[in-house]
Simulated scan of single mutants.
Amino acid sequence: MARRFLAEQARRRAPYETTASQACLSLTPKAAELGWFLLATPEERGGLGQDFAALGALYRELGRALSPLPLMTAMMAVHALREASSDYANAMLDSIGAGDAVVGAQLPHGGAVHVSSAPDGFVLDGRLSHALLPDGATHLLLQADLAGEPAVLLIVLDGGVAIKRHEIWDRTRELADVVFTGVRASAEAILAKGEQAVRLIADRSAHFDLALACDCVGGAEQILDETVEYTRTRRQFGREIGSFQALKHRCADMKTELEAAKALTARAASAIDSSDRAAVIAAGAKILAAQTYRAIAMDAVQMHGGIGFTWEHDCHLFLKRALLNEALGGSPEDYKDRLFEPMRLAVDAARA
């Protein structure tokens, strides 16, 4: 149903004709009516109470459609709000579920914000780099330093926050630097602190990585399907180009690489709520899926021939999304550097 809905309601080129946020103006209310923003909200708090398996399937379809819908940042906020029981948290869950609140999110390792106490709440100072922030976002999910311990906040974006938007090659997402200089926030905006915040930050990072991995798998599936179909209809030298052995082998290699990425992503999705190594597995899935998506998208451009390099064809739209997915959260080398220590500790523990 999600695939059919996105095919009917979301045009691939809409973000390039306007902006990602403008393209979502009609899409977000309809997605909210379908309950997409309620998927991760517990049933006892008015949601559908689904695990990551349902979310992962939807992330894949959004990737297939190159959709600009900011579902990932909304679900990251929902995951944090589930841990709080305040009236503010309940109201925010309702607002996100209805599609009224548009949430941006700090990228993992995306800067630092310090929180100090004030008579009527807290004051924020600091800078976030390349936050996922839709134009018109009403709230921002971030982590901060609160008196020497970590905290997770969901703050209202108002006139006191300085936002510098970035022009990027993939128009389906919007990135911005966010600067806080003496910005006041209410005490209820702090959703967790201390050990609870440490756990939420790790969970958010795993969710981010796995959501991108699912998006990559969906996008790679779609562009591979379209490329195979093109080789069946494009004729050269009196025959379909798909009958040439070199292209057959190339398509087979692409399919093999995609299946490996799908398998690791599925393994990560099954472990995200139950394994203490969920963050490591999710990061590994993101690395493999993003590299696979980029490779398949680049091969697709080549296999479409001259038309694949033109603006009029959609190949470049998939390649742009693939390149941004790979860059978000850090380069593959950054990810591997961060994974080295926990993997070394796991190996040492297994040998002990």
Rank of each mutant, 00 (worst) to 15 (best):
L154F: 07
S331E: 12
P119N: 02
G97F: 01
A349Y: 13
A220C: 05
A105F: 07
G238T: 05
S86Q: 06
E61D: 12
A131M: 07
T138C: 04
L154I: 04
A77F: 03
A268M: 07
P332F: 15
I287T: 14
E83T: 09
E174R: 08
I281S: 11
A144K: 01
A53F: 13
A98T: 13
I281G: 02
K255G: 05
L324R: 14
A185F: 03
A77C: 04
G148P: 06
R267V: 01
A137G: 05
E257Q: 10
G160A: 14
G63H: 07
F244N: 02
C216E: 00
H114T: 12
A192C: 10
K262I: 09
H249I: 08
L146P: 00
G99I: 07
G46C: 15
A252N: 10
S243F: 10
G46T: 15
I168N: 05
R13G: 14
M76D: 00
Q222W: 08
E226W: 07
D51L: 04
L258E: 07
A23I: 06
A269G: 13
G305S: 14
A84V: 00
D120G: 01
M1N: 05
R235V: 12
A202Q: 12
E326F: 12
L6K: 05
Q143H: 08
A266W: 08
A53L: 13
D276G: 11
S129D: 09
G136R: 04
L264F: 08
R234Q: 06
A112D: 12
Q302F: 14
G49C: 09
E149I: 10
H79W: 05
A84H: 03
S95Q: 10
D348P: 00
M92F: 04
R11E: 11
V152L: 09
I307S: 15
F180M: 03
L25H: 11
R64K: 12
K320W: 15
E229M: 10
R239V: 08
A266P: 00
E312A: 15
G218W: 07
S243I: 09
A322N: 06
V152I: 11
G47M: 06
E259F: 10
S21L: 05
R338I: 09
H114E: 09
Q143W: 05
A32F: 13
L258M: 11
G97L: 00
E333A: 15
L71M: 12
A350C: 10
H166K: 09
R82C: 11
D135N: 07
G330E: 15
L140T: 03
A297Y: 08
E43G: 07
S270A: 15
A54L: 11
K255C: 07
G136H: 05
